[in-house]
């Protein structure tokens, strides 16, 4: 009489066979420590602490509309103040030169 097919028994055998054939690779040295270090780095705020993330933060700050408008306004104001100051100085020098030319002709100086 032919052996009866027992699916439960076959499954068990197959599972054992598969388990035995599975290769479990050895972990690289200090694997666990490295994993924790990466997790900590990723979670620390602004931890990337390299130039790139700082640059990103700076650019993000400058591109914020309120900051951008304020910066443009400040630069315009500074430019106008300096321009007005320089113009005043030039006008003063011209006026001084005009007076001196009137009272002290070049032939005497």
């Amino acid at each position: 009489m032919a052996a009866r097919f027992d699916p439960m028994n076959q499954d068990k055998k197959l599972s054992e066979l598969l388990r035995g054939s599975r290769v479990s690779p050895s972990l690289p040295p200090r694997f666990q420590e490295n994993v924790w270090r990466r997790i900590e780095d990723a979670e620390a705020p602004g931890a990337a602490s390299d130039g790139v993330s700082l640059l990103d933060a700076l650019v993000a700050m400058f591109l914020r509309p309120r900051f951008a408008y304020a910066t443009v306004a400040a630069l315009m104001l500074l430019g106008m103040l300096l321009g007005a100051y320089q113009s005043t100085r030039s006008a003063q020098h011209e006026a001084e030169a005009r007076y001196i030319a009137a009272v002290a002709p070049n032939s005497l100086r």
Partner: peptide
């Protein structure tokens, strides 16, 4: 922006 304001004011 700064240079433009300066030149325009002068």
């Amino acid at each position: 922006v700064f240079a433009g304001s300066y030149v325009a004011t002068r």
